[in-house]
Amino acid sequence: MKYYFRLGFVLLVITVVASGILAYLNSITKPIIDENNRIAKEEARLHVLPEAVSFDSIFVYNDENVYQGKNDAGDVVGYTFVASQYGYSSDVKTMVGVLPDFKINKISIIEQKETPGLGANCEKPEFLQRFDNLSEQGLLVDKDGGGLKSITGATMTTRAIAYSIKDGLEELKEKVDEEK
């Protein structure tokens, strides 16, 4: 009986010591991780809407905040939102910067696990540039009769990006018009 107590006691001691050390390290790294995430999101927003100096959340779309970007003078210079849709083998998440006339300013991919060499090419600037200055009507992939050139061998990835942005734009337009 005493032997089994000793077994339990040794394991308990090890686990308690380990948890204590981890709790301490967690208290150090957690704020850094949160801060990193915050900075990463802010940089992603600034990247697609460089003219803005401040961002205010205006509503929530797809579990993510939609922001209104303002410049120094307090004028609205555009909006950012996160579009997301299942592509070929993963959810493709895109950060979209929109100008006040609801034309796309710039987009960037924030998350994707598509096929390397095919769908994963959606992160390349040559592809991302195709979205600059597009309006809602322009978001139609060439395979569906539109003018947006898809990634070679990855039409499904292109569709996911284009149509998720289109849905987001529609939602944004509706919400912003309501405000007015």
Binding site: A18, L25, I32, N36
Partner: peptide
């Protein structure tokens, strides 16, 4: 089990450190 706890602790440490830095 004791070894596993020790190993898991170091794994968690490197996990947190890499996540942060």
């Amino acid at each position: 089990p004791a070894y596993i706890v020790v190993i898991a602790s170091f794994v968690t440490i490197i996990d947190m450190v890499m996540h942060a830095f």
